[in-house]
Amino acid sequence: MARKFPLAVCFLFGVVMFLQYFSQHEAARAVNQAILDYWQIVFAFTLILGVFSFARNNVTEVRRGRDRVYRIVGLAGLLSMPVLALIWGIKADTPFMWMFENVQAPMQSTVFALLAIFVASASFRGFRARSLPAAVLLISATVMLLSRSNIGGFFSDVLPDVANWIRDYPSMAARRAILIGIGLGSLTTSLRVMVGIERTWLGGEK
């Protein structure tokens, strides 16, 4: 029963959502709206679950003395933002907004900017024309890099057009193939979940 009931619910909701997609009837739209509301509510609860899980895990590790400083900073961040929001609100020029704009955003941008460092290092050490496909990739990358800067046109007026051609044909063909593959994969996985062949979401076979 513990397995059959969730599987039945999953099948029922899968079929209902699939069928209502093709209907404009008032009842179908009402069912759709109600399910979407519940979907958002369930998702909101998963966020709460995530917060508690993060807090419990870090408190336990602080007690054990593992990476204590980092975990305390993480917990302080988790606690301080809702506290600031509750006391002073989330409007512009509040401490909450100040923390977001002057602490969180710059820190995240800094971490993201490290990518440039890795790209610089990789371009020197790993981007080699070892074979014909590697050489084609290297030349394409160089053309794209030049075209995505303001200096592409300085070397040749044709360069931006060549870059657009790479983007519109070989790149798009590969991307389409990937997207079609993802689509077919999603479809088969959904069907497997709905009919109960794929059951890992239940917590695995025991």
Partner: peptide, 23 residues
């Protein structure tokens, strides 16, 4: 921002060329 991006792109191209010459 394009100034920074353009110069970084040129620099990366230079590194690719240098890396390949060395290789």
């Amino acid at each position: 921002g394009m100034l920074a991006q353009s110069s970084a792109h040129l620099y990366v191209i230079l590194l690719i060329v240098l890396g390949n010459v060395a290789y």
